[in-house]
Amino acid sequence: MKRRIDFSSGSIWRDTAVLFITAGIALFLMSQNNSSWLMPFKRVTPEIFSHLEAPARDILKAGKLRDENYRLARALADSALVGQWACEALLENQRLRVLLDLKERALPELIAAEIIGRAVPGRPGRVHLMTNSRLKISSNCAIITDVGLAGRVTGRAGNYIIGQLLTDPAIRIGARIQRSRVQGIVRWAYGNVCIMEGVSSGSDIIVGDRIVTSGQSEIYPGGILIGYVLNVESKRKGLFKTVSLRTAIDFNCLETVMILLDSKDSKGPIE
């Protein structure tokens, strides 16, 4: 009588057979680990897994992009802020160097002052200046920069000095064309543009000519640059030319100025 082995579900025989077969295959594979016929499988399958992982790794990295973007944006903002501070310091340093150079160049006593605000609302030509100097500053002292003439001192309000810039409608400056020595009166027109009046129609003026203070004024010393000729208009029957000039100073960016102490017509100290 034959004994039948029960391979039904849960049979010990079946379990044992499966155990031996699978373990045997595993042991056989281990013994053949370095065989040449297995090498293609061992080389290809990890590559397949790597290829399958690549897109998912990209997706996982994409999840971190938001945080990284935020971090980079913050770092960029910090850097930009530091850059702005550095730029401001550099510009201030350049301005002060130029002013120092100007002071050393010759002009009599100069006092550095900082524009801290408008003295009269709606009139950008009237400004408050602040200086650390203990010297007494007279009214009608000229205000200059390293570039050219900025205006004059008109008085004092408390601790501040009141300055009248070229952009004030009330200012008038005796001027001349540096090349041809033609004289006239400069007044503000708009923005950084002034008009030179009183120039006879036959005068020799060309666009680009330098316009400087005439020196005949009792306020401003001669030879200080005011601006450059922008346009020259002659009326057919008129006696005078209309000369437009662009100021040497960009008054939109003006921050630091120098007060020239020995202007000709200083009317005595103002307290």
Binding site: A26, F28, L29, M30
Partner: peptide, 11 residues
């Protein structure tokens, strides 16, 4: 198969 180790050991 997913790693280039000893084939069959994990099995």
């Amino acid at each position: 198969l997913s790693s280039p180790g000893l084939l069959g050991i994990t099995a």
